[in-house]
Nucleic acid binder design. Structure first.
Lengths: 230, 230
DNA sequence: TGGCGTCATTTTATCGACAAAACTGCCATT
DNA sequence: AATGGCAGTTTTGTCGATAAAATGACGCCA
């Protein structure tokens, strides 16, 4: 769970705060599965791992608690929050209806430049994809492009709160994505799935777009199920 | 055997950690408007006010950031996040559709004991209300009973995440509620508004319940508007 | 008057230290 | 063999001190 750091550090913008840096690194490490679910987060260990003192660490972990990535027990420290099939199903349901709403409103409100952003984001994502590679920074970059695409879809929904909700749910979902191994992922044709959504969006066919999106999100469910049922 | 420790834990919520206590106090102070929007939160001031060191304070404030109650600027400290009409409208919209969903699902799934909880919560709320009083602890108690009632309505939606979302939105909304003075509040017949919702719920009339709920939430909009338009 | 650099003061972010709590391994007792 | 203390070790939560950054005051000069 260590050395893919430079890329993320470089991207962390303006962060003269030691704490912001460690926050983003821990967050990404949890999302990418480098810090596995349920793992104890001992302050001394993290100090060595992330090269900082206890105060920035504790602040960073505190930020991650309301986001649902970290749990805390009184006098028993921090740990990475768990992943369960029940939680995933809840998440999937939340995502389907909140993004559906956001997508419908974007389709109503979005103009040509919105369409352009989507097409562009899809292009970059599809470029990144064939080059599949389980190596950490590649995976991080792919995740970034994937998120950029999905956020572009709903960018014109007109509600900052709804955008933030979708963003948070997306990141929580990526914890589950990182659980499926790469072979399984390669079975799906991700680019085609996304193209299908875009095609419906460009036709301004909200119903088709929403159902393609739901279908897209639902596919991970079938990959996750065998992993989380013991 | 009930030992003393459990009793204390049960009585003081989140008990032994100094930080949990200060977290809840600051949170409530922001929601109730005792810490007004935009106000600078200097650590030294807070140390005196809440009687603790810098570390618990910074952790508590960090928890409040993702919840949207506190903003942070690099090397410029913390401040209470702002309230605007735009933000309120976004919030109102989010609340209407997320609680509508939660309420519909509760009406589908909830049983007799769910109905009982609602009736009970309404009873306690209506008891607390006529005794109106702008005094702080009364206001806090009324807020608590009001929230208990609304959470009881959606308690059977079956989605922990949706419940948490509604809970967070409710608390953010209460910041706006605390802006309207008590005279204005007294003009409304709060108990009647809530009874109307309950009546529709007990008839299992989801459409009527949802629209009564939306109507209820919308009423604050008219009270807020003159306050936030300068 | 009004903009600008400089210096002193305040405020922030971080570190190291310490008391209290939790965990661990061991031994005696049943 | 299992249970229940008991001491030693780790780990947590909090405090005070300190360097870096921001803020504010003041005088200088156009």
């Amino acid at each position: 769970m260590v050395n893919a750091r430079q890329a993320i550090e470089a991207q962390s913008d303006g962060g003269k705060l030691l704490m912001s840096d460690v926050y983003q690194r821990i967050r990404e490490d949890i999302i990418m599965g480098r810090l596995e679910a349920g793992r104890k987060l001992r302050i001394e260990e993290l100090k060595a791992e992330y090269g900082t003192g206890a105060s920035p660490l504790r602040e960073a972990l505190s930020l991650l608690i309301p986001e649902g990535f970290v749990d805390r027990l009184e006098n028993r420290g921090f740990r990475v929050s768990g992943v369960t099939l029940t939680d995933f199903d809840d998440l999937l349901d939340m995502r389907c209806w909140s993004e559906s709403r956001a997508l419908r409103r974007s389709i109503e409100r979005g103009g040509k430049e919105w369409e352009g952003e989507i097409v562009l984001a899809l292009y970059w994502f599809s470029q990144a994809f064939p080059d599949h590679d389980a190596h950490d920074d590649r995976a991080s970059e792919r995740r970034r492009l994937h998120k950029t695409f999905h956020m572009a879809l709903i960018a014109e929904c007109g509600s900052p709160m709804l955008m933030e909700l979708c963003s948070r749910l997306f990141d929580r979902n990526d914890r589950y994505r990182s659980l499926v191994n790469f072979a399984a992922t390669a079975e799906r044709n991700h680019v085609a799935e996304h193209e299908q959504i875009v095609e419906a969006v460009l036709r301004r066919d909200a119903d088709a777009a929403v159902s393609a999106l739901a279908e897209h999100y639902g596919k991970l469910r079938r990959q996750i199920e065998p992993i989380l049922t013991p």
